[in-house]
Nucleic acid binder design. Structure first.
Lengths: 226, 226
DNA sequence: ACGCGGTTGTCACGCATTTGTCACAGTAAT
DNA sequence: ATTACTGTGACAAATGCGTGACAACCGCGT
């Protein structure tokens, strides 16, 4: 299966050049001409890698990068930043943004391909770790939407699945009911916080013995522990 | 049909030896005495595999390799590099060149044949596996636009065929309705997401017993499972 | 151009499951 | 013991999906 790359830059000539060469190299390409579009496309169908120009209309690359990193669906997609000014590099690679690599314009196509290959090779090997959450005998496969305990599958509803995923992703850290409502129910604060309790109960019932990982932190929230 | 191999080396004795043995082994052989000739012959009629000496007059093997990789017609032809110096191996196998294998001179004919066989076998199976999707008794032939179950053909409309192909390509992973709309209907977001349901139904009707592979993941999407 | 058969998108209905809420029981902390 | 918080059972509302019917659409041969 082809690896998908999103190219976001406001210079059509550069996009076209890059697109042509990457397609040549066997990748599947999507493009965006500004930050907003890049964000939208990355969200709707997270690619395997993103080439992100810093200077763009609507929303600049730094902002897009930050947002993508913040959202679980795109948090782990590698990002290569493109910049004209060498002075911006520090900020790009800083922890606050978490871009994986950078290229200063103008860059050679050959170099671009090398970097892409390197980064994709890395994330490919990490792939299994990327979309599978494991803890002892408990396994959550996100793309397959499967939960299993000692290799025996456990049926889950959509919300239960999401709830468990979020808790496991943030394993060890306590999640308040409000936080869970925001992350699992997506911005619908109009729901009673006690509803979380009910779903935790159902989750515990279904998990059976594996429910031992679900801790209640009285007065604070819930936590997944190893 | 015989598989064609291009042998490029500037040592006539070695070329003759290799040519003799490969013909013996049932391959069809073309030869070149320098890089320029190798490039020309590879371009005019891409062989199934190329043996490429690194040290050659006119143009060295590394350069030829790079150029061949860059051009779509020859980008996927496997290349085995021949080198006298072990120190050159790193560069050869590095990502920048993308050679498939290498041999250090002097090499035994037996070893050469083994490597050729291995690489050709790999590219052969990749080829056939590429345009056919199989799962148990269910077979989808992409270029022939044919679906069959236990060797009995099943009639499919264009959209049904695409839908099934996409699902099988991403077998195991859940596809949301939005995702399917994008991939099957090619970016027509103006279509109702529930339309996917109808097509899944029609697909299931036509597949009959084979429809057991099509899972509905409530609140998430659909999935093809083995 | 025309009409035809098959294909495709939409809608409304009904069912089963999921989901949110509430009251009450249970439990830990002060 | 009291208080504050969480677990539990039951229930009604909401949601999501399969289904059948239908109209718009398209390709295609005449």
């Amino acid at each position: 299966m082809k690896l998908r790359i999103l190219v976001a830059d406001d210079e059509p000539e550069l996009v076209e050049l890059v697109e042509f060469n990457l397609k040549q190299a066997g990748y599947s390409i999507a493009t965006a001409v500004d930050g907003a579009e890049a964000l939208k496309k990355a969200r709707s169908q997270p690619p395997d890698l993103i080439l992100l120009d810093i200077m763009m209309p609507e929303m600049d690359g730094l902002e897009v990068c930050k947002i993508l990193r913040r959202e679980p669906a795109t948090a782990k997609v590698p990002i290569i930043m493109l910049t004209a000014k060498a002075s911006e590099i520090d900020r790009v690679l800083g922890l606050e943004l978490g871009a994986d690599d950078y290229l200063t314009k103008p860059f050679s196509v050959r170099e671009l391909l090398l970097r892409i290959k390197k980064i994709l090779a890395r994330s490919q090997t990490e792939e299994t770790a990327k979309d599978q959450l494991r803890c002892g005998d408990l396994l959550v496969d996100l793309p397959r939407h499967l939960v299993s305990w000692k290799n025996k599958p456990i049926e889950m509803t959509a919300t239960e699945f999401k709830l468990l995923s979020i808790l496991m992703e943030r394993a060890g850290r306590v999640q308040s009911r409000d936080q869970l409502l925001r992350d699992v129910w997506a911005y619908d604060s109009l729901i009673d916080t006690r509803t979380v309790d009910t779903h935790m109960r159902r989750l515990r019932e279904k998990l059976g013995p594996a429910a031992k990982h679900l801790d209640t932190i009285r007065g604070t929230g819930y936590r997944f522990t190893e």
